[in-house]
């Protein structure tokens, strides 16, 4: 039995400890916001926060996570009550096909928590672990910058 906190709720998982965090979230907890794009830690679509740090959930067996605090895109807000970053993505065209969006939002949230510089280079670095094939990144960067500057 593995105990962890997922989006602020205490959860336990009794299956095989080598199951990936991504699959546990999607299949066992039915949180399908995190996506699998590559299974090689390259695209970042499966990004979640573990103890506040962004990670690729496709590269982590859940057995490594006893007591960990997991946050997924679903923790940032719901379609009915969107969080600040999510709203900014909606307003500024940060999401096109949307498949990279959950991971982008998680990476952006991690960036926000470590100071959240709105300089272009800093934003690009923060999002460099997330591939997007639709937007060319411009509107994503503008979305994150808008959300972070709106904070002040």
């Amino acid at each position: 039995m593995i105990r962890l906190s997922v989006n602020g709720k205490r959860r336990s998982y009794a299956g095989h400890p080598f199951k990936r965090l991504l699959d546990v979230l999607r299949e066992d907890f039915r949180l399908t916001g995190s996506k699998e794009g590559c299974g090689e830690g390259e695209c970042g679509a499966c990004s979640v926060l573990i103890d506040g740090e962004p990670v690729n959930s496709c590269l982590i067996p859940v057995g490594q996570l006893e007591g960990a605090k997991i946050e997924t895109v679903e923790s940032l807000g719901t379609p009915e009550k969107l969080g600040r970053l999510q709203k900014a993505f909606l307003e500024h065209g940060g999401a096109q096909c949307g498949i990279c969006t959950p991971g982008m939002l998680v990476a952006a949230e991690a960036h926000r928590r470590c100071g959240g510089s709105t300089k272009r280079q800093a934003l690009c670095r923060a999002l460099a672990g997330n591939l997007c094939r639709c937007t060319g990144y411009k509107h994503i960067i503008e979305s994150v910058a808008a959300a972070l500057s709106g904070k002040r």
Binding site: R30, T32, P79, L82, Q86, L90, A95, G98, T101
Partner: peptide, 23 residues
Amino acid sequence: ANARRKEGPEKVGGTAQYIDDYD
């Protein structure tokens, strides 16, 4: 005008259903 995309709230909320998200 820059009308918001209709399916946008689900996409940014993480609840949009792609094929592998269907149980």
